[in-house]
Design a protein around this nucleic acid. Structure first.
Lengths: 207, 207
DNA sequence: AAGCATTTGTGAATGTTTTCACGAACTACA
DNA sequence: TGTAGTTCGTGAAAACATTCACAAATGCTT
């Protein structure tokens, strides 16, 4: 029902609204929100019309109510269990990234194939070997897998995750994964963003 | 000229093509490429028609030639200088991320406000304080800024980057930045991707 | 050299997303 | 209560993106 673009924007609106809440601002109009995000007000009204809560004509939206609806829609009203695959530099950065815990995402398992890493402890989570994954997914209620291994290993661990019953995967390895239809996959490729930037720089240089 | 969606796909095509090259495959049809990426062949032909090199009817595209054109379009034929702002966990992961160097992106400056970090050395790059940024951008030919600081500090460092003349910014802080029109900005918010996943999980659960 | 089998490149058709524009809902104040 | 001033929600229009479908280009076989 909600399309991809809308969801992406809802996430951003939610961020801004939470910032407003901290600053004790309790109402905002679509016009103001749009200005803050360089979007048209009608875009914002259209997007928000897809979540439950309605704005009030002549006034705008109530920050608190809207956050509540957005948290509901975006699945932030409950905790989610994560398994981190890959305990390298990137894996560690993700594990300790404060934004996850804040929104209810908990790393409950950390997997790495490197024997020198297995057994180490990160804030109470012990790093274990790949063959423990299936068991951990069941026991620790893992909802999502986060892949932070080198490209070569990515396909295999993705397969293991899916085999263990995980239905959502966030892939940081720079390789497109081919997973079953019913697994929701997002690919966050750091170098891809960079290439996007350089492509634009190139284009503007030409002008 | 090239639109956002097309660029995003071109980056992916380039990845796949480079993989094919490694495996000594020298030709590919739009049909095959489409299958590999779950895209229609006409989408791929349309996208590729926007880069210089033409395919050959009855044969397909030549991998090597196509990579060459894509590298050109995506700005991968030259080196780019990066400044990393923020030497925390995420900053370190980005700095040591192998994908960047491979595609010609070089971190030439690392900035952090924490006195205990200033003076440390990461693979030959010394961590320096924020007030050195302007000078470094000039001296080290910095093309892009990579922001990996906590939200509170993000706006300010973004402003400093822009003030120093940087025209492209990759923002990892979970806060929307408001930069001048002529600065190209990309926002990679790790928690945002996660929220996207949980939103989808929620939606499918409901059905 | 001719005919068949591929596959490209691209107008035209279709589908999707965003913006426009305006009636209806609400507030504020006299 | 009435009037003026906001702002929302949403059909309809416009802009944008994808897919279809087919002529033209090429390779392969006889």
């Amino acid at each position: 029902m909600l399309n991809k673009h809308t969801i992406e924007r809802l996430v951003v609106y939610n961020r801004v609204l939470k910032d407003l809440r901290v600053r004790n601002i309790s109402q905002i109009t679509s016009e103001q929100l749009g200005e803050r995000l360089s979007k048209t007000s009608s875009q914002i009204r259209r997007d928000l019309s897809e979540v439950g809560k309605k704005g009030r004509p002549g006034v705008g939206y109530f920050v608190e109510e809207l956050i509540d609806s957005l948290d509901e829609v975006l699945g932030l009203k409950r905790k989610w269990g994560l398994a981190l695959i890959g305990a390298g530099n990137l894996g560690r950065a993700l594990f300790y990234y404060p934004g996850f815990k804040k929104e209810g995402y908990e790393f409950r398992a950390v997997i790495d194939a490197d024997p020198s890493k297995i057994g180490r402890n990160w804030s109470g989570v012990t790093i274990t070997s790949p063959d423990t994954l299936k068991k951990l997914v069941r026991e620790k209620n893992i909802d999502m897998g986060v892949i932070a291994v080198p490209s070569e290993a990515a396909s295999e661990v993705a397969g293991t995750l899916v085999g263990a019953g995980v239905k959502a995967v966030l892939n940081f390895a720079p390789v497109p994964l081919d997973l079953p239809e019913d697994v929701y996959l997002r690919h966050t490729d750091l170098a891809m963003d960079m290439e996007n930037l350089s492509c634009h720089l190139c284009e503007t240089e030409k002008k």
